[in-house]
């Protein structure tokens, strides 16, 4: 059972796509390769389909390439795929997608031992208050939101805000976000005013108390990104393996980095979502003095405020640090 196998390769996928069409022109072949292939695939794969030393799977007549196969190409699930599916069906979050009876039926159809068990792994820094994936109401709201995202339709959502207020509104759900750290699903939404996109926001699915799908298909908002205009620029020193740790920890964000060999300092620019600014500040604090936030001033100011507040506490006589 191999993970790195040509069965799953992009070249096989392209060949299958072309074979499915039965008869294709050279231009169509090139278009398929360019759409599905790597940047340079056309250089290597096209001659193997249209050239004189082509695979025996294709024959050519008057510039039309046809498949030699009798049927439309297809293959069964591999053992790897079956074992992976069985493994994910054992995960408690799979209840969000398939009912228990369906999961049991599918496991039986697949008929293999799972590739792994959740008990093989331990996420030691996952937060302890993850979402209630087995809760029927939670599952129902999750599925309704999922359907609305797929169909791009408005959905009525009631939820409890962070301040404890109950809010009910019609929203267009854009994407469902999952955080492995928080073990939570959140939905990114847009509200509307006078049929125009008005405000964007994020709702914790665990705080949702009601969902009702509508058959209203609103205008899709254009620029949804809440990305910062200016990146956080951080100087990271070599001390305590900080460069390695920092680059690994912030690998999820888009970054640029420059290493100064003379000083041993790596200057990293991090592009982040404005919603996450406080969380990023906290994560930066965890590195202590081996990093320094250079800019933007609003983020440096937050670091400074927390440090000065700590200094103030230190200076009070009864405190022992």
């Amino acid at each position: 059972m191999k993970l790195f196998s040509e069965i799953y390769s992009i070249y096989y996928r392209i060949a299958e796509e072309i074979l499915k069409r039965k008869k294709v022109t050279k231009n169509e072949i090139r278009d398929i390769i360019q759409e599905k292939g790597f940047l340079e695939t056309v250089l290597f794969l096209e001659p193997k389909i249209t050239g004189s030393e082509r695979y025996s799977l294709f024959c050519e007549e008057d510039g039309i390439y046809s498949s030699v196969l009798k049927k439309s190409p297809d293959r069964p699930l591999t053992l790897l795929e079956k074992k992976w599916l069985c493994a994910v069906l054992n995960d408690r979050r799979s209840a969000l997608f398939l009912d228990k009876e369906v999961r049991e039926e599918l496991s039986e159809v697949l008929g293999v031992t799972p590739m792994f068990l959740q008990s093989d792994f331990y996420s030691f820094d996952k937060f302890a208050d993850g979402d209630p994936y087995e809760d029927e109401k939670y599952i129902s709201h999750f599925r309704n939101i999922c359907t609305a995202v797929k169909n791009k339709c408005l959905i009525k959502i009631s939820f409890q805000s962070a301040k404890g207020n109950r809010i009910t509104h019609y929203f267009l759900p854009l994407k469902i976000e999952y955080s492995a750290k928080n073990d939570k699903f959140r939905v990114h939404v847009t509200s509307y005013k006078n049929k125009k996109p008005f405000e964007s926001g994020i709702i914790n699915i665990s705080s949702v108390t009601l969902t009702e799908i509508t058959d209203i298909y609103p205008e899709i908002p254009e620029n949804l990104s809440r990305k910062c205009r200016e990146p956080i620029v951080v100087r990271v020193s070599k001390e305590r393996n900080a460069i390695n740790r920092f680059m690994m920890e912030f690998a999820e964000l888009e970054r640029t980095s420059v290493f100064d060999e003379e000083t041993g300092i790596c200057t990293v620019s991090l592009w982040y979502n404005k919603y996450d600014e406080t969380e990023i500040v906290i994560r930066l604090l965890s590195f202590g003095p081996v990093i320094e936030v250079v800019s933007p001033s609003c983020v440096r100011r937050q670091m400074r405020q927390r440090v000065l507040k700590q200094k103030e506490i230190l200076e009070q006589s009864e405190i022992t640090v």
């Binding site: 790195f4 040509e6 060949a15 790597f38």
Partner: peptide, 16 residues
């Protein structure tokens, strides 16, 4: 992961 090399025989036999 989708970049594994193969021979002409591999791909031909796969589909056949």
């Amino acid at each position: 992961w989708k970049s594994k090399s193969y021979t002409d025989n591999d791909i031909t036999l796969h589909f056949l």
